[in-house]
Amino acid sequence: MNLDQTPLLSVETLNKSFGRQMACRDVSFELWPGEVLGIVGESGSGKSTLLNAIAGRLTVDSGKVLYRAGDDRIVDLASASEAQRRHLMRTEWGFVQQHARDGLRMTFSAGANIGERLMALGDKHYGTLRDTALDWLQAVEIAPERIDDLPRTFSGGMQQRLQIARNLVTRPRIVLMDEPTGGLDVSVQARLLDLIRRLVQEHNVACIVVTHDLGVARLLAHRLMVMRRGQVVEAGLTDQLLDDPQHAYTQLLVSSVLSV
């Protein structure tokens, strides 16, 4: 783990409303290099809005999203120029969508999907692009001979793994994941979680994982934030928070998990 003394990302009193509906209210947190932060809460609690606001996909009403870029400059993403924000998103950030088809180019082969970010950064050598794609397919446990197949022909789990490879290929420093295991069956989920855990560790990326599944949160996240009605009601180390929930809402969440 990186022992830097400044956080990679610090969000300060972020507010976002849709009309009269407050989606995020005074949300503040910090994310450290190599750390996995889970955001849990029920549907409509503002988790995805928060994630989209951090990623610059939504304009925030007020607050700061301070990111320490690769060259150690602090950039406020909430007020940065669109050019700068899009460049960071392509290079130092990744975004894994809940539905793989939103995050993949469905009409291009798996290899092209993995190579896209590299080509956007000016990599113009077909041979090396292809080698990189093959390496990454292996890293996410997809058979290399499927490199020229369209993602449409892949199973849901494979599509999700391809999406992860496509994001990690530029070695981002932060990856945002919106329900990465949503809609997958349990055994596929388990494999995907395993893979994400391994990759996050190997490449030392910081992650923010939005999920409503406390099991996923417990497996992946070092730290948890519980959101309700746009506010953070409780935050802390994952095990501590799940084993000894303080807030009434967290207690409700934890007690509603079915145990088999």
Partner: peptide
């Protein structure tokens, strides 16, 4: 313009 190269790659 990276995406244009994606087409040529394809």
């Amino acid at each position: 313009y990276g995406v244009m190269h994606v087409k040529l790659y394809e």
